[in-house]
Amino acid sequence: MKTCLDLFWTFFKLGLFTFGGGYAMIPQLKEIVVEKKKWATMDEVMEIIAIAESTPGPIAINMATYIGFKQSKVLGSLCSTIGVILPSLIIIYLISLFFNQFLALKFVNYAFVGIKCAVAFLILRAGLDMFKKMKKTIFSLSIFIIVFSLLIIFELFAISFSSIIFILCGGLLGIIFYGISQRKKVSE
């Protein structure tokens, strides 16, 4: 029980002080979880990051669940996961109650003219960074170009479409394409 409370409280604090998503959490996770609490080694944290990247969902949640499970099984992972989401839940719920009134203020409205530009910049930059790092094969480039163009066309013509379908098709094509090219390599 003591471990569970400790897990809850530690991840509550991590959730409260993590701005900007999962990767921003890694330095603090290293300091608290690896060095202070000794719940995991740095190698394990790196391994969890690799798992988090290849499983769906927010990285912070994946980390909290994994480390909590290692300490006290399902109860532990429940405690750490609830701990890490609770600060966001409380803060955003409070904001949501006043957001419309807040936006109606003139200077806030002006501020959001700037914030909107910053958000566009941040997302575009993140996308371009990912594109630079992406392994460029004929397969990945053509998928990128097709999906990118379709997404822009859908936006222009206001066509509603679920991107989940793209994600599933991409995964399926990946299995087929890379599967075939790996088999070819083996037979050569």
Binding site: S54, K116, C117, V119, A120, F121, L122, I123, L124, R125, A126, G127, L128, M130, F131, M134, K135, S140, L141, I143, F144, V147, F148, L151, I152, E155, S163, F166, I167, C169, G170, G171, L172, L173, G174, I175, F177, Y178, G179, Q182
Partner: peptide
């Protein structure tokens, strides 16, 4: 391989969202 196939889709999703927002 599934994840390899998904990657360019994710990059396209994020880049196009950024561009549309801009």
């Amino acid at each position: 391989n599934f994840l390899q196939g998904i990657k360019p889709i994710i990059v396209a999703l994020i880049t196009s969202t950024g561009l549309i927002l801009l």
